[in-house]
């Protein structure tokens, strides 16, 4: 197995000690099949135990290890070292406050995610005894892509609009709202529209599309947001031109 030495430049920040973030360099001997997360784990295990970063599954499922790798929002467990030059710079996700080293404060996203009610709001009252809510494969296909979101927040980090306007509800939250709106078992669309059809929600999106480019699960949040815009426009005309028509 071939081994390659890389310079890992890691952003370090300790709120108790540092006035501002700084970079620390580590020389890491990497195996060919290593990802950036392996290199960080090597640093933590053998070189510097004080380094802080989030990770869990090491297989692009948990969404914990999102960080900037050479300036691009990436899951550290999906970024193969062999695809990068000998010097790799690792920083915490852009557009989020730093808690410590590579760990960011996620409160803003968590609060926004809950606001769009990303859960099934049953469309019809059904007792447990009357059986399951059935769904055809075609009905499932309408929204399945949007269920793949792992809340890794890479899309928020890539979105220039979120960087400019922190109130923006953002790609993942709106894409997840869209996922439940499209679900044949769901009846909560009117409630969610009150949140996502506002100025600082879907209408803040200028369709840059960076969210879909960085999404590690191919959710295509940018596509979801354009569909939400179209549906919200139809809503607007119905509400203002045909107010007597029931939804």
């Amino acid at each position: 197995m071939s081994e390659r030495r890389i310079e890992l430049e890691v952003l370090r920040y300790s709120p108790e000690r540092d006035r501002e973030p700084r970079f620390q360099s580590y020389t890491v001997p990497c195996l060919d099949e290593w990802v950036v997360l392996d290199a960080l784990n090597h640093v933590k295990d053998h070189l510097d135990t004080t380094l802080s970063y989030r990770w869990s599954c090491h297989m692009a499922v948990c969404g914990s290890c999102g960080m900037m790798v050479n300036g691009e929002p990436t899951l550290a467990c999906k970024a193969f070292v062999r695809d990068y030059p000998d010097r790799i710079r690792v920083e915490p996700l852009a557009n989020f406050p730093i808690e410590r080293d590579l760990v960011t404060v996620m409160d803003d996203f968590m609060e926004k995610l809950a606001r769009v009610k990303p859960w099934l709001i049953p469309g019809e009252d059904k007792t447990l005894g009357s059986g399951e809510h059935r769904q055809t494969p075609a009905e499932l296909k309408r929204f399945k892509q949007y269920t793949m979101c792992i809340n890794c927040m890479l899309c928020y980090s890539a979105c220039p609009e979120y960087g400019l306007v922190p109130e923006f509800l953002g790609p993942a939250a709106i894409a997840l709202a869209h996922r439940y709106n499209l679900d044949s078992r769901d009846g909560g669309r009117a409630e969610r529209q009150e949140i996502i059809a506002r100025d600082e929600a879907v209408w803040q999106c200028s369709f840059v599309g960076a969210c879909s480019e960085v999404c590690p699960k191919h959710v295509d949040p940018a596509g979801a947001l354009q569909q939400v815009k179209l549906a919200s426009t139809v809503d607007w005309y119905r509400e203002h031109l045909l107010p007597w028509v029931k939804k």
């Binding site: 059809a197 100025d199 209408w203 815009k229 426009t233 607007w236």
Partner: peptide, 15 residues
């Protein structure tokens, strides 16, 4: 905060 009136300009933009 009410729903946005952006659909007026965006609908024409999309068309």
């Amino acid at each position: 905060m009410p729903k946005s009136n952006k659909p007026i300009v965006w609908g024409l933009f999309a068309a």
